[in-house]
Design a protein around this nucleic acid. Structure first.
Length: 141
DNA sequence: GCCAACGTTGGC
DNA sequence: GCCAACGTTGGC
């Protein structure tokens, strides 16, 4: 069981939007190979932090992987007729009672080296067990 | 709105 | 295969 962090712009798809729909949904529109590869490495039941980029800049909840990587329904085939972009399907698990902000993460020595901080443009990144546990605790879980 | 970081593209 | 130019992401 591995842990991840997935970014979304809350004005496009917020955690509350996902909860309100209440059905599994594709984590579509990722167009970066590293992020895609991270999704291909995900297993059923893996959990991920849901991070609001641009607005809020904080981890607001937890989602889980309910379908392994499959072709992204929003992707166009390339010149060889292949769809290279894939995504997993996710469901919300629970909201963090206290969102953990990027600022807090940067100020916390144990978290300052997270992929979220080091690779700020990567929209799907790995989270270590230690980072996961600490953020859950800081988030009030 | 600016800019740093980084990925992609295309000329050579 | 290198590198300059350009585009995008996302924090500030």
């Amino acid at each position: 069981m591995a842990y991840w962090l997935m970014k979304s712009e809350p004005n496009v798809n917020s955690y509350d939007d996902v909860v309100a729909r209440g059905v599994p949904e594709e984590w579509h529109s990722v167009r970066n190979y590293t992020a895609r590869n991270n999704m291909k490495a995900m297993q059923l039941g893996d959990e991920a932090f849901f991070y609001h980029s641009n607005i809020g800049k904080e981890i607001v909840g937890i989602i889980k992987v309910v379908a392994l990587a499959h072709p992204d329904s929003t992707a166009e085939p390339n010149e060889n007729g292949k769809i290279v972009w894939e995504c997993v399907d996710v469901l919300p698990v629970k909201k963090l009672p206290k969102p953990v902000t990027l600022e807090t993460i940067k100020r916390t020595p144990e978290l300052a080296d997270m992929a979220l901080v080091r690779l700020s443009r990567l929209s799907v990144s790995p989270v270590t067990d230690a980072e996961w546990k600490l953020i859950c605790k800081m988030g009030g879980l």
